[in-house]
Simulated scan of single mutants.
Amino acid sequence: MKSTCRLLLLMVYIVSASCVSKKSNLEAADVGQLEEQYEYLYKSIKDVKESPKPMPRTTKNDKLVNVGPYDWTSGFYPGSLWQLYGLTGNDVWKERATAYTEKLDTIQYWEGNHDVGFIIECSYGNGLKYQDSNAYEEVIVQTAKSLSTRFKPNAGVLQSWEWNKKWDCPVIIDNMMNLELLFHATKISGDSTFYDIAVSHADTTIKNHFRDDGSSFHVVDYNPATGEVIQKNTHQGYSDDSAWARGQAWGLYGYVMVYRETKDPKYLRHAEKIANFIKTHPNLPNDQVPYWDYDVSPGENTLRDASAAAITASALLELSTYDTDTSSKDYLKWGNDIIDSLSSKTYLAKVGTNGGFLLKHSVGSKPHGVELDVPLNYADYYYLEALSRQKQISK
Score class of each variant (00 low, 15 high):
residue 23 K to F: 10
residue 328 S to I: 01
residue 71 D to K: 00
residue 180 E to L: 04
residue 296 V to C: 04
residue 18 S to T: 14
residue 294 Y to Q: 13
residue 223 N to H: 04
residue 395 K to Y: 04
residue 113 N to R: 05
residue 56 P to R: 04
residue 162 E to N: 14
residue 341 S to D: 14
residue 51 S to D: 14
residue 230 I to H: 07
residue 264 D to C: 09
residue 76 F to D: 06
residue 170 P to H: 01
residue 360 K to T: 11
residue 8 L to I: 09
residue 213 D to T: 11
residue 57 R to H: 15
residue 376 L to Q: 02
residue 296 V to A: 03
residue 314 S to W: 00
residue 343 S to A: 15
residue 348 L to E: 02
residue 340 D to P: 00
residue 369 G to I: 05
residue 351 V to F: 05
residue 199 V to T: 12
residue 388 S to H: 09
residue 111 E to N: 10
residue 158 L to D: 03
residue 282 P to T: 06
residue 393 I to H: 06
residue 11 M to I: 14
residue 126 N to D: 00
residue 80 S to W: 02
residue 323 D to M: 00
residue 349 A to D: 13
residue 242 S to R: 02
residue 139 V to P: 09
residue 172 I to Y: 05
residue 348 L to V: 05
residue 324 T to F: 11
residue 170 P to W: 01
residue 203 D to H: 10
residue 127 G to R: 04
residue 332 L to W: 09
residue 310 A to M: 03
residue 371 E to N: 11
residue 142 Q to T: 14
residue 116 V to F: 06
residue 278 I to A: 11
residue 357 F to N: 02
residue 130 Y to A: 03
residue 348 L to S: 07
residue 329 K to I: 12
residue 166 K to F: 14
residue 227 G to Q: 10
residue 355 G to Q: 13
residue 394 S to I: 08
residue 8 L to R: 12
residue 114 H to E: 11
residue 135 A to W: 15
residue 234 T to D: 03
residue 108 Q to C: 10
residue 372 L to F: 03
residue 165 K to S: 15
residue 308 A to S: 15
residue 42 Y to N: 09
residue 308 A to F: 08
residue 65 V to R: 00
residue 185 A to L: 04
